[in-house]
Amino acid sequence: MGTQRIAILFLGLALVIGGILFLRGKVAHTNTLRICTWSNYFPEESLRDFTDKTGIRVELTYISSNEELFAKLKAGATGFDIIQPSDYISSRLIALSMLAPIDPRLLPNLHHLDPYYFSLPYDPGLKYTVPFTFGTTGIAVNTSKVSVPEGQLSWSFLLDSPDAGHTSLLDDMREVFSAVLFFKGLSPNSRDLASLQNVKSDISKVRDRVLMFTSEPKPLLLKQELTVAHIFSVDAIQAHRENPDIKFFIPKEGGIIWTDNFAIPSTSTRIEQAHQFINFFLEPQNNLTVVEANLLATPNKSTRQLLPEALQKDPSMYPSQETLAKLKFLEDLGDALPRLSRMWTELKS
């Protein structure tokens, strides 16, 4: 008898707690912003500054990947006022009308952004998103182990690596295909099946030679298990900080550029306060705090000018205009995606 009652009590309690947590998602204080963010992104002091200045409280929820964010939103999560999607997720969200439009009148600090970012292919004119960081994909090389030839590096350095046994590719379908497409002088967003098939066979040869696929090569680079890695600029820069021999290169054929953005879900009820938040972090000084804390590249030209000279000129963080022109954003492939994913599965089997 006793255990029975306890069991029912427990179940009831679980349901009640679940209900409370669920309702909290629906009801909230008027002056709180719910932000879905990456861990350790916003420094404590910046958030306190914001609250002091505007009187708006901030509540953070953490996610660890874009896919997680997308899955949450698709599943119907409505409690967020600010989200931080990357470019390719943003374009999907825009197409699905899941984002609220950005009102430039509420963002007086918008002009601090570099003009480059006002004509992005996935959100021209920044109608729905505001970039807060950008990065590139390239090749990291441990120069003390592998010597790098004179002049600009080519994607062939990765695909036909001098140290294939310690080389890795990103475990990312689009990125790997893009590397070869760039090498062949084609667009990374090509939907042409014939070219893609060719690329696929090239990749299968590379696959047999390299050590592994990984989207987190940094620890292995530092452990010297890897000497040449297909890598995101953010990781490469952090690795370089710890081991100056590890250098980052953007190949001469070009590469992928990506952004992480602020966006406001269309279900948000605090659009004005959300704009205030975005505007606060467009302020160069505030942006600087975040950038310094995370070693990120900033699209904010005013902030950039506040950085030390060496950092401003660092090509791995801030590619030259010439290089910038060769960089491309990944775009949605529409109905070519399933076929590409099948090719990817084929490669991995």
Binding site: R207, L211, F213, T214, T345, K348
Partner: peptide
């Protein structure tokens, strides 16, 4: 398979 196999082969779980 990802961490120890170098993610070179996709198995059912990964797919």
């Amino acid at each position: 398979p990802d961490l120890l196999g170098g993610a070179k082969e996709a198995f059912l779980g990964k797919v």
